[in-house]
Design a binder for these strands. Structure first.
Lengths: 152, 152
DNA sequence: GATAAGTACCTGTACGATACAGCTATCTGA
DNA sequence: TCAGATAGCTGTATCGTACAGGTACTTATC
């Protein structure tokens, strides 16, 4: 008897995720181009990951971000052109290149991150702290579930 | 005193949403191309909205989906080419075109929707019904907050 | 009821993000 | 040592999207 209920909940989740992606995309487009500039592309995600996980190879980035190596290569090239990362030869592997964020890159990333966080703060202004916590936790679990599924 | 806590919660939400968009995109790419074919593009979102809200104009679709009119025009053209929607002149406005889903379109959409719902069912297999409900509800509120913010 | 202003849609064009295929340089194991 | 694997880059293609401009139609004003 609870199957019907479950089905519809899954449907709602599917709907809401699709909507979120739609709106998130639009928001990224709007905020990325308008105020902060330059950090438009997937650049933000790459810089974030570099800041979190430290300097690393193109391949490692590609694997972690679920992107093709060639995509990361191009993004990284753009970031280098803008002085936000540096490429250095991997000392332990002549084929590899280690990508490190520059101070400017970290700063730029932090600024965008702060702006986004502020945005969420505005949007969720009337939410209780508890609801925010719950949302963060459930989203984390959802992402974990996504990762696990992709890994299979 | 709770400000620090709030800050970090907002940061987590920001992180998780960014991650979700990244993985969601990858998932869409993977499931869209592999099994169901044809319904790759924003086509799915358009068909869903037509199924939910009934036949409507290009402009209405564009406004609702947060897309440029030209984008919707092209998506709709592709959908028409594939026999998934029909265009009829708006009887009440000679400039307008009413977009209606065809049975084939509805069927295709339902198939993709079912596949996605199944996917979520798999991923969230070990979640309690309560957690699923809560996730659906909070995502709904988050989207509502996003819509409100865009409207401002 | 004529005409100016607005609206709906389409088309041309451009761009960003991405993937896949193929290349070169380098590494590694038998 | 050398055959196969791997790291990264480049060429090319595709998709989704936006913006600018055009045409046809509608609405409001006088």
């Amino acid at each position: 008897m609870s199957d019907d209920h479950d089905e519809s909940t899954l449907g709602r989740i599917e709907t809401e995720v699709a909507l979120l992606m739609r709106f998130g995309e639009a928001t990224r487009r709007a905020t990325g181009t308008a105020e902060h500039r330059v950090l438009d592309r997937a650049a933000y995600v790459i810089l974030r990951h570099l800041a979190d996980a430290g300097p690393q190879n193109v391949s490692a980035l590609a694997a972690r971000l679920n992107l093709d190596g060639s995509t990361v290569t191009r993004q990284v090239s753009a970031l280098q052109r803008d002085g936000l990362i540096t490429r250095t030869p991997d000392p332990s592997d002549g084929r590899g290149t280690v990508i490190s964020p520059t101070p400017a890159g970290l700063q730029r990333m932090a600024a965008v991150q702060a702006a986004r966080t502020r945005l969420y703060g505005d949007m969720l202004a009337d939410w209780s702290a508890e609801d925010r916590d719950t949302l963060a936790a459930l989203l984390g679990r959802l992402n974990q579930a996504l990762v696990n599924r992709n890994r299979r």
